[in-house]
Amino acid sequence: MFPVLRHFCHGMAPTPIASMGPVRRYLSWENEERCRGLLEASTNRYRQEAVSAAVLVSLCSVAGDPSILYTLRSSTLTGLHKGDVSFPGGKCDDSDRDVIATALRETHEELGLQLREDCVWGVMRSLPDRTKMLVVPVIANLGPLEHLTLKPNPQEVEAVFTLSFSHLLQEQNQGYTHFCRNGVYSYTLPIFLHGPHRVWGLTAIITELTLELLAPGKYRRKTHLVARR
């Protein structure tokens, strides 16, 4: 049996819609229009350029609580990404019309969701993964999770869970890992903690960029690059 989808709101039950307050603005029509405008140039660029891979940054609501949906990749997969927390996505096919088509197709293959293109808010800039492949994040709002029927592909997905914006924006749930490469420079990367699974790597970087886009002023990036003498 596939694991039950879990939702985390900094250790508390989802907040009733009537008392959500400003948190609901993250998925509001006004915020959607603002984000679409900010992403317009990037969206137009990547819809016309050939890319290697795409992921769908899956916004949703759980009992009215704005959240982000994640998958845990199957530990039986081959390659570096098995067992990692990720967004639905994968490599582009020749049959894909553009990067958005790739993200929607991969989401259908992994989660059984047939999403329409109008749920997409836009496309963010590409980012390299651990294999140096450029991955393009596509942001979409799936709507209320209660209205969706998820059918995860067990060959690709081991678990599905969500983290609420209120959880992700709590400083006690934010961590950072420090790295030093070749003794020349050091850098930090974000980690999001205290959910059912730790969010790290490229998925954490994309989560950080998403929080900066949807919740400006609420999330403060602590990642930095320090050159060594």
Results as ranks from 00 to 15, higher is better:
8 F>G: 05
20 M>F: 07
27 L>S: 06
32 E>I: 02
36 R>D: 03
37 G>D: 06
37 G>N: 08
49 E>N: 10
50 A>W: 11
50 A>C: 10
55 V>D: 12
57 V>T: 13
58 S>G: 02
61 S>Y: 04
63 A>V: 10
65 D>I: 08
68 I>S: 02
70 Y>S: 01
74 S>W: 07
78 T>A: 13
80 L>F: 15
81 H>R: 13
93 D>F: 13
95 S>K: 12
97 R>E: 15
100 I>S: 08
104 L>Y: 03
108 H>I: 04
112 G>H: 03
113 L>E: 04
113 L>K: 01
118 D>Q: 12
119 C>Y: 00
119 C>W: 01
120 V>H: 00
120 V>D: 07
127 L>V: 02
129 D>L: 01
131 T>V: 08
132 K>F: 10
134 L>R: 12
141 N>T: 03
149 T>K: 13
151 K>M: 13
152 P>G: 04
157 V>H: 02
159 A>E: 14
159 A>T: 06
159 A>P: 01
162 T>R: 07
167 H>S: 01
174 Q>R: 09
179 F>I: 00
188 T>P: 04
189 L>G: 08
193 L>G: 01
194 H>F: 09
194 H>C: 04
195 G>A: 09
197 H>M: 08
197 H>G: 00
198 R>E: 15
198 R>K: 14
199 V>T: 05
200 W>I: 09
204 A>P: 00
210 T>F: 01
210 T>W: 04
211 L>A: 01
213 L>K: 00
214 L>E: 05
215 A>Q: 09
219 Y>I: 04
221 R>S: 14
223 T>W: 10
223 T>A: 08
